[in-house]
Simulated assay, not measured.
Amino acid sequence: MKSPEHPSAGRADVRIVAASPDAARQVADALRRRFAATEQRSYPVDDSGGTRLHLTVDTTHRPEPAQPWLVSSRSSGDARTQTDEI
């Protein structure tokens, strides 16, 4: 049996096996809040209805923190009247 390849330095391959796709996504979302990560890839587990989810996390960079809606919705400072405004 061939040994699996190791991820590059600063990265970790994560495999999540859960009874449902939603449970696997919740765990992946928690990891993404802590680490930058690739898109997840999911696969069914046998006929049990379970899900196997793979993603790679970057342990050298933290993801950008989510901004509250008030901060993200601030005006760009452009006070011009828009064409659809009266």
Rank of each mutant, 00 (worst) to 15 (best):
M1F: 11
M1Y: 10
S3D: 11
H6G: 01
H6K: 15
P7S: 01
A9T: 05
A12L: 14
V14D: 02
S20Q: 06
D22E: 15
A23S: 13
R25A: 13
R25P: 02
R25H: 11
Q26N: 08
Q26T: 14
V27C: 09
A30V: 13
L31P: 03
R32K: 14
R32H: 07
R33Y: 04
R33W: 02
A36V: 04
A36T: 05
A36I: 00
T38S: 15
S42L: 09
Y43L: 14
P44Y: 10
V45S: 13
D47C: 03
S48N: 15
S48T: 15
G50V: 10
T51V: 13
T51R: 06
R52N: 05
L53C: 05
H54E: 12
L55M: 06
T56M: 09
D58A: 00
T59I: 12
T60F: 08
T60S: 14
R62W: 09
P63S: 04
Q67C: 04
W69V: 13
V71N: 09
V71T: 12
S73L: 14
R74L: 15
R74F: 09
S75K: 00
S76K: 05
S76E: 11
G77F: 01
G77A: 01
D78V: 07
T81L: 12
Q82W: 01
D84P: 00
E85V: 06
I86K: 07
